[in-house]
Simulated scan of single mutants.
Amino acid sequence: MRQTLLAVSLTAIAMFGGPQAQAQDAGIGGGIYAQYCATCHGIDGTGDGPLNELMSQSAPDLTKLSEANDGVFPMLEVIHIIDGRTGLRAHGGPMPVYGRVFDEEHGTTMQGDVSAVLETRGRVLSLAMFLESLQQ
């Protein structure tokens, strides 16, 4: 079973790795952030977006994630919060599950097409990398 999974993974990387690898960068993450996150978290990530005043719980300051984690950016936790599949919910729950949002843009779920799954994961990683670049 492991050999089959490894073979499928390597094939997927060979077939789809090029474009997805390019999609995983902070520059692309900045565009994703502007489209999906800035309305609550603010353009600069400090939590002062225009929709924040309508929320029951304020959006956190995303520029201080490393500071709150002993100077280390909590990449995996951030990915889990963005992706929303771990049960960990930011803001107590009102934040959209962007893994699902990105999947639905492709008309698939994480169980679906390998290229769509890789695209969704690449977008989540790009967004997390952008957030890492905002740290003060």
Rank of each mutant, 00 (worst) to 15 (best):
residue 9 S to I: 10
residue 78 V to A: 10
residue 98 Y to M: 05
residue 35 Q to H: 10
residue 80 H to M: 12
residue 26 A to T: 09
residue 90 A to W: 11
residue 69 N to D: 14
residue 37 C to E: 06
residue 116 A to R: 02
residue 49 G to T: 11
residue 74 P to I: 11
residue 19 P to G: 06
residue 62 L to C: 06
residue 23 A to Q: 13
residue 14 A to Q: 12
residue 61 D to G: 07
residue 42 G to W: 09
residue 81 I to H: 14
residue 40 C to E: 05
residue 96 P to L: 13
residue 86 T to P: 01
residue 97 V to C: 02
residue 87 G to H: 11
residue 95 M to V: 15
residue 132 E to I: 01
residue 12 A to C: 07
residue 54 L to D: 12
residue 83 D to Q: 13
residue 112 G to L: 05
residue 110 M to D: 05
residue 112 G to S: 05
residue 131 L to G: 00
residue 33 Y to V: 04
residue 117 V to R: 13
residue 97 V to G: 00
residue 127 L to M: 14
residue 34 A to E: 09
residue 68 A to P: 02
residue 62 L to P: 00
residue 4 T to V: 11
residue 65 L to K: 02
residue 100 R to A: 13
residue 57 Q to S: 13
residue 114 V to C: 04
residue 40 C to G: 05
residue 100 R to E: 15
residue 46 T to V: 08
residue 118 L to N: 06
residue 103 D to G: 00
residue 115 S to C: 02
residue 21 A to M: 08
residue 31 G to Y: 08
residue 77 E to I: 10
residue 109 T to Q: 08
residue 59 A to V: 05
residue 33 Y to S: 02
residue 95 M to S: 09
residue 17 G to K: 06
residue 32 I to V: 14
residue 11 T to E: 12
residue 97 V to W: 04
residue 62 L to Q: 04
residue 77 E to M: 13
residue 130 F to V: 00
residue 63 T to D: 07
residue 68 A to C: 05
residue 132 E to C: 02
residue 38 A to Y: 00
residue 101 V to N: 01
residue 112 G to E: 04
residue 64 K to P: 01
residue 27 G to E: 07
residue 70 D to C: 04
residue 7 A to V: 04
residue 73 F to V: 15
residue 91 H to T: 10
residue 1 M to L: 08
residue 34 A to L: 10
residue 57 Q to F: 06
residue 11 T to P: 01
residue 50 P to F: 15
residue 115 S to N: 10
residue 97 V to L: 08
residue 100 R to N: 11
residue 96 P to N: 12
residue 8 V to M: 11
residue 30 G to K: 14
residue 80 H to A: 14
residue 39 T to V: 13
residue 54 L to Y: 15
residue 8 V to D: 14
residue 10 L to M: 09
residue 52 N to L: 03
residue 25 D to L: 03
residue 134 L to Q: 01
residue 78 V to Y: 04
residue 60 P to G: 09
residue 43 I to Q: 13
residue 80 H to Y: 13
residue 65 L to H: 02
residue 72 V to R: 10
residue 91 H to L: 12
residue 8 V to Q: 15
residue 136 Q to Y: 01
residue 130 F to E: 00
residue 100 R to W: 07
residue 113 D to G: 03
residue 83 D to G: 02
